[in-house]
Measured scan of single mutants.
Amino acid sequence: MAAAAAAGAGPEMVRGQVFDVGPRYTNLSYIGEGAYGMVCSAYDNVNKVRVAIKKISPFEHQTYCQRTLREIKILLRFRHENIIGINDIIRAPTIEQMKDVYIVQDLMETDLYKLLKTQHLSNDHICYFLYQILRGLKYIHSANVLHRDLKPSNLLLNTTCDLKICDFGLARVADPDHDHTGFLTEYVATRWYRAPEIMLNSKGYTKSIDIWSVGCILAEMLSNRPIFPGKHYLDQLNHILGILGSPSQEDLNCIINLKARNYLLSLPHKNKVPWNRLFPNADSKALDLLDKMLTFNPHKRIEVEQALAHPYLEQYYDPSDEPIAEAPFKFDMELDDLPKEKLKELIFEETARFQPGYRS
Rank of each mutant, 00 (worst) to 15 (best):
P328G: 01
D283M: 00
Y131F: 14
C254A: 03
E186S: 04
L222W: 03
A42M: 09
S320K: 10
Y30D: 09
E349W: 01
Y25K: 07
A3D: 13
N224P: 00
D88S: 00
D288I: 09
H239R: 00
T190F: 05
G32R: 10
S41D: 12
Y316L: 07
A92K: 00
Q315R: 12
P229H: 14
R135C: 13
C254W: 08
P229C: 01
H125L: 14
P323E: 02
A327H: 04
E350R: 02
E341R: 12
V46W: 09
G10E: 13
R191P: 03
I90V: 08
A171Q: 01
L346H: 05
G169R: 07
Y64C: 14
P229S: 10
Y193D: 03
Y187E: 03
L234A: 04
S223R: 12
I209M: 00
P319L: 12
S57W: 08
R135L: 13
A282P: 13
L130D: 01
P11K: 09
I209C: 10
K272L: 11
D177S: 07
K270S: 09
N47P: 00
A35E: 11
I83D: 00
L267G: 00
L170W: 08
N257P: 04
T351G: 09
I227Q: 07
T295C: 09
A4Y: 00
P196E: 09
P11Y: 03
I256R: 11
K344G: 08
N27A: 06
G169P: 09
N262R: 08
A3P: 09
P176S: 10
I31T: 00
S57L: 14
G169M: 09
I90D: 00
M293R: 10
D167T: 05
L155K: 08
Y233D: 12
P311W: 01
Y193A: 06
L146P: 00
K272Y: 09
I126P: 08
I53Y: 04
S266W: 03
Y102V: 09
K300G: 10
N87I: 15
V39Q: 03
T351V: 01
D106P: 01
Y233V: 02
V104Q: 10
I133Y: 07
A143W: 03
L258K: 05
S29T: 01
L156Y: 07
V104H: 02
L335M: 13
G215S: 06
R194F: 04
S202Q: 08
L237V: 00
H147I: 09
D111Q: 03
Q66S: 13
S29Y: 01
A52G: 13
Q236H: 13
L335S: 11
I347R: 09
L163Y: 04
A325F: 00
A219S: 14
L107I: 03
Y25E: 02
F279R: 08
V18L: 08
I89L: 06
L200G: 01
P229D: 01
L278S: 05
S122C: 13
G242I: 03
P226Q: 03
H147K: 08
